[in-house]
Amino acid sequence: MTESLLSVRDLIVEFPTRRGALRVVDGVSLDIVPGEVLGVVGESGAGKSQTGAAIIGLLEPPGRIVDGTVHLEGERLDTLSGDQWRRVRGRRIGAVFQDPLTSLNPLYTVGRQLTETIRTHLDMTEKQARARALELLGEVGIPAAADRLDAWPHQFSGGMRQRVVIALALCANPRLIIADEPTTALDVSIQAQITALLKRLCREHGTAVMLITHDMGVIAETADRVAVMYAGRLVETGPVDDLVNRPRHPYTEGLMGCIPTMHARPVRLDQIEGAMPAPRAVPPGCAFHPRCPLAVERCTSERPPLVARPPLATACWVRSPDGDAA
């Protein structure tokens, strides 16, 4: 196996509150190899965005990493100070967020934001930076980039703004881009353009992408591997095709079953009864057991570990029981 670019081990993120700590990410371990797109899916509140934020050190206070490690190319990130972070974030890890409007400063032209970011991370003159900015805009597919370099963010449409944000993330040629719901705020026809762009950049530059989204369709089209999160925990990971078409975990299975598709018209959609528990009310044992049709006694008391049985790794006592042996 290739050396992993990003390696997260047993990550635990908590938000201290006066009623005790809320554990929003609970023992997540994952790896990303260079040039791969890892899709992280889950319903809202599953902890996928918090995982992404923890990796780039942008947890909203008072949230903090209480346990676990994050390594990027062998360098430990989770213990970095604010100053040290500035060298990593933007240069080695880029970020793209949901709302392109709030990711750009409305008071500066697009060109200025790009050149400033470039010069923060790379040793370049103003002129060189401008040339690079132009090149980046062209690369993310902005037509007539030379004319638009001095335009203001509000003069761009939503899809074009998201392209600019991606160009910003690419400024220093990072090894990894964390993209949190990059297409959620966009129209379907624009969504496809953006996912195609991410995929192409990944292929051409060997940049790895951690694609965080709630949209299984986007994942299926874009990701190489998928990690499914539920109530702050990883329940299943594996190659996208296996995970979508032959899932093992009952939650993943239920999730795939309840997504309507354009190809069939069932009388009823499969549905998972109930809702995902809030971080405060996660049940003991397997977090999914109250909603699980397969739950047995053991699921209610013991938390199942993520057991690798290629091609998938699954955390389930029933479907992946060789956890016994481990």
Binding site: S44, G45, G52, A53, E60, S103, D180, E181, H214
Partner: peptide
Amino acid sequence: MTRPRARPTTG
């Protein structure tokens, strides 16, 4: 740099 935000309309 902007902070990550939860999807505003959701969940």
